[in-house]
Amino acid sequence: MDALKSAGRALIRSPSLAKQSWGGGGRHRKLPENWTDTRETLLEGMLFSLKYLGMTLVEQPKGEELSAAAIKRIVATAKASGKKLQKVTLKVSPRGIILTDNLTNQLIENVSIYRISYCTADKMHDKVFAYIAQSQHNQSLECHAFLCTKRKMAQAVTLTVAQAFKVAFEFWQVSKEEKEKRDKASQEGGDVLGARQDCTPPLKSLVATGNLLDLEETAKAPLSTVSANTTNMDEVPRPQALSGSSVVWELDDGLDEAFSRLAQSRTNPQVLDTGLTAQDMHYAQCLSPVDWDKPDSSGTEQDDLFSF
């Protein structure tokens, strides 16, 4: 819950932080000083300027060897085509990944977070970031790969997607708890209302004896509580940590079903599988986004697919 609360507080303090972009060759504004600060901008989305290598189908939802083989196929196909790589912007948030063309600003792909089953910074092609997700059109699994400016960037994108998945799962947990509370309150309110109706004398007997209905007592009954809980029953509950912020979080049926399955089948359902080692994760978390744009010590960066 700490990640969720800190993310909400950060967004309320400075929503404009989320509009910064990394990996864009110096076009961005001043960047936060450390990885923790940038992680807090996830709610509205972190932007990464990358190059799209392509996509291939895979048979399993996750796995280092599986993704490595898929990336190898994608890279080989991209090299064989001889075409310049498409420059894209990857927007990562707890909602998922939005992929747009840098030149036309046209939407290429919009992947809900619950469809993503794996992401990684490839070991062999260490400047490549990739994720595996279920197609929104059918049940097939797709591996999408992107060329980053350097290994640090690939690791940073991988960690960002993993963190977005974690925050999304926490949102789901909060929403589920809130819905259970509202359902319980609604049920209790309905029981109270039913009890009051059972003990209320029939209207005919009131008229016969000349008694008047006590409207004041009726007004004191917990009807307002019942209506408050039943009027918006169809509205999706939102985490309290975000009250007053500009973010509107809505959970669709697909996300609810997917996270429910994860909660039942996995020990740590909030953790998205990645190909990063503990050492890689520690190294990337210690980086400032400013470091992502620094040239690798191995030599001059080449803006070309064939540089790796």
Rank of each mutant, 00 (worst) to 15 (best):
D126I: 00
Q155P: 00
L206M: 04
R238L: 14
D122P: 13
D214C: 07
E188L: 10
T100Q: 08
E40W: 04
S297T: 00
K72V: 04
E178Y: 05
A241Y: 03
A154Y: 00
T274H: 00
S175C: 01
L242T: 09
N34H: 12
L276N: 04
E170N: 05
A168G: 11
D291L: 07
T120C: 09
D256V: 14
K204I: 15
F306G: 00
A80P: 13
I12Y: 08
N105E: 11
Q134L: 15
S49M: 15
S265V: 02
A208N: 08
T200H: 11
V271K: 04
D101M: 04
L107W: 04
R115A: 07
Q134P: 15
L57G: 04
A208P: 03
T209G: 14
L276I: 01
T225L: 08
A228K: 04
S21A: 07
A18Y: 09
F165V: 01
F165W: 15
D304P: 02
K166A: 04
S246C: 08
A284Y: 00
M124C: 09
R182W: 06
P222D: 02
R182L: 06
D293R: 01
L4F: 08
L147Q: 04
K294T: 09
L242Q: 10
A284C: 15
G189P: 00
C119N: 07
G210D: 01
L212H: 07
V88E: 14
S49C: 12
T209I: 15
N110D: 10
S21N: 14
Q86D: 08
V226T: 12
A221R: 00
K204V: 14
A80I: 13
S14K: 15
A258D: 00
Q240V: 07
S298A: 10
A278T: 00
N105M: 05
E44C: 06
E59P: 12
V247P: 04
N105Y: 04
Q279H: 05
G190H: 05
L213P: 09
I74E: 11
W292N: 06
Q20N: 11
Q163H: 05
N105S: 13
A221G: 07
T160P: 00
F48R: 10
G82W: 12
A80Y: 13
S298I: 04
S6L: 14
G254M: 03
L17Y: 13
V128I: 07
N232L: 08
A156C: 06
V192G: 14
D126Y: 03
D234F: 06
A78D: 15
G275T: 08
L251V: 06
L57R: 13
T300V: 03
M55Y: 10
L66I: 04
I98D: 07
Q106K: 13
I116G: 10
T274I: 15
F171D: 09
G45L: 12
W35L: 04
L262K: 11
Q106D: 10
L11E: 03
S224K: 02
V271N: 02
S117Q: 03
N110C: 13
D214K: 13
W249K: 13
D183M: 04
K87L: 09
E33K: 12
I71P: 04
Y52G: 14
